[in-house]
Design a protein around this nucleic acid. Structure first.
Lengths: 337, 337
DNA sequence: GTCTGGCACTCGGTGTTCCCGAGTGCCAAG
DNA sequence: CTTGGCACTCGGGAACACCGAGTGCCAGAC
């Protein structure tokens, strides 16, 4: 009976604080939740919870506020991920359905997520390294320049302009293209380097410099794109929410690809939902923010991650539900295309 | 002597207000600028300037602040665009030099501009409609799906997945591809519809449905992309600047492609520098902001526009210099590739 | 006619003080 | 273990006074 009630109190505090954004006192608690005990009892419980580090008071004689540890306990044991309403699900589907290419999928997803959660949404482009080569194209632009276009099975298209060491006519380019495609069609991107290592040996001697050049650009493209693009949306939602840290810092972090990368959590390999609360966020410039992220990808392989960033004081059940749902739908869409 | 001095006063007011962000009074003016007259005289001039609508006072007994009309006069007649320092020019060059493809150019440009002006930078992707076709590629994905890739002379690459009405083998696809390229190579995008209208008649009867399908997707891609992508950067700079309007509104506007489009001013066809001040901005949600924009593009044809958005109270000479310089450099880069 | 110094007036912003009320901790009784 | 009572704390808002920058106007000087 004892400990159970304390947990109930903690849950009530989190819920009230999230919805009112004001420190919650013992009296308000008994009024809004039927806990069946008096304010005085609640006070005792709160004293214990505070001692254990789950809640804190901003100043003497104010209500209590959950600590990061308190939110953590709430997320882990006191709440259930809230499924989306039917209307929301329909909205997601129709919103993502119309996407016309990969770019479009990502753009739509990030906006959708921002709108759904009323927070800042972040979506990472699918990683090249877990895709396979669908086609490689060499397009002559001028005599000494060709454009390399790399198309993967995830629908991603990369292009690079290559300055050739000498003028090369179209036939030789075509030959090279055929060779490349023969070697690489369906090849996992990770294995591209191995599969083309001997390419210069397979072309006429005169073409070797050109082949080497093309090859080096191709490999470079593979490596560089490894750290992938990340986009975000919903920055306007920041203005409403107030962080303990200035929102200038938050905006700065959002424009730093590298930081965003770390925030989404490149670590976890599964598609599971990850929640980082306050001080758990691996970036000191973002005190007072939490991140809910999940992996997505066709099949069971994770291609990339997406998530939202918001104030520590956020509605975790709802946010987690939205992130999870969107991750699933995007995975579906990608699998279908 | 008379009117000249009033203009000098207006210029001084604008400059002081921009640098201090505080209403400027007659006494402060005489101290910071050697106008050679007493505060009382200035006061008389200010009274006239106010009557003519160039300046205003926030409340009785405070200094004066320029109105939109005042800024306009300042920009048109009282200031000179400030050229960039040698160091800044070098920074621009080295920053843009490393760009590897069009995406990269745009991304780098927008960041550069944001950093240079310490405002929000906005860059529009080059418009397809003023480019020409460099190459069209059809890549078979499965028997019934091909990917259409459109490469333009500006280095832009567009892709679309096409669901075919029937299974089609690679040879027929290759034939179609050859036809398309023969008809469209070097063709201005505007004229693509005309040049391919008769395509279905030029293929074997059995291929007509497929050709029609491909064609419709191609045309659709041309139309849809007509309203182009726009990116922005430097939102963090908003936090510092204070607008008369909440920055929530500004952030919202920034995420609306359509609004941004209008802001950059799709109207003007030349590459000239455009300045819109306060109420001149064609979007009511943005009271208190100004926009400095310019067209860019290889040759003398404007491909798209870029610019910055900031508080009305901005340093116009410096901002205009930066925008102009960046527009020129980007044009160069694009012309070279 | 134009400029200047003087003067009375205005009023926004800041610092001070005071008060209220929500909330707490503790204690003794149920 | 719970509850009602009670004294205490302290942040935040309202009321208030003060200061100083800035103004408009006017009479006199160049």
């Amino acid at each position: 009976m004892v400990d159970d009630r304390k947990l109930a109190v903690l849950r009530a505090i989190v819920e009230d604080y999230v919805s009112t954004n004001e420190p919650v006192g013992s009296k308000a608690l008994t009024e809004r939740h039927s806990l069946g005990v008096s304010p005085a009892t609640i006070r005792n419980d709160m004293a214990v919870l505070e001692e254990q580090g789950y809640i804190t008071q901003p100043h003497t004689s104010a209500g209590r506020v959950p600590t990061d540890k308190g939110y953590r306990l709430f997320v882990d044991r006191l709440s259930q991920i809230k499924p989306l309403s039917a209307a929301e699900k329909r909205a997601i589907e129709s919103f993502l359905q119309g996407a016309v290419d990969l770019d479009d999928v990502v753009t739509r997803t990030v906006r959708l997520l921002a709108q759904l959660t009323r927070q800042v949404a972040v979506v990472q482009y699918p990683t090249l390294s877990s895709s396979t080569v669908r086609h490689i194209e060499l397009v002559p632009l001028t005599e000494r320049r060709v454009m390399l276009v790399l198309i993967t099975n995830t629908g991603r298209v990369d292009q690079r302009v290559i300055e050739l060491p000498e003028a090369v006519d179209e036939n030789r380019i075509a030959h090279l293209r055929a060779l490349l495609n023969a070697s690489l069609d369906g090849c996992d991107l990770n294995k591209v380097p191995d599969n083309v290592a001997d390419l210069p040996d397979r072309v006429p001697a005169e073409d070797r410099p050109v082949a080497a050049m093309v090859l080096s650009v191709l490999l470079e493209a593979l490596v560089e794109r490894h750290d992938e693009k990340i986009v975000f949306a919903g920055a306007a939602n920041l203005a409403a929410a107030d962080f303990s840290v200035g929102l200038r810092e938050v905006l700065e972090a959002l424009e730093e690809q590298v930081v965003l990368m770390r925030l989404l959590g490149e670590t976890s390999d599964s598609k599971a939902l990850t929640v980082r609360i306050g001080s758990e966020v691996p970036y000191t410039g973002l005190r007072g923010t939490s991140i809910v992220a999940a992996g997505y990808g066709s099949g069971d392989k994770q291609l990339a991650r997406l998530g939202v960033l918001g104030p520590t004081r956020m509605d975790y059940p709802v946010t987690m539900g939205a992130v999870r749902a969107v991750a699933r739908y995007v995975s579906q869409i990608l699998a279908a295309s």
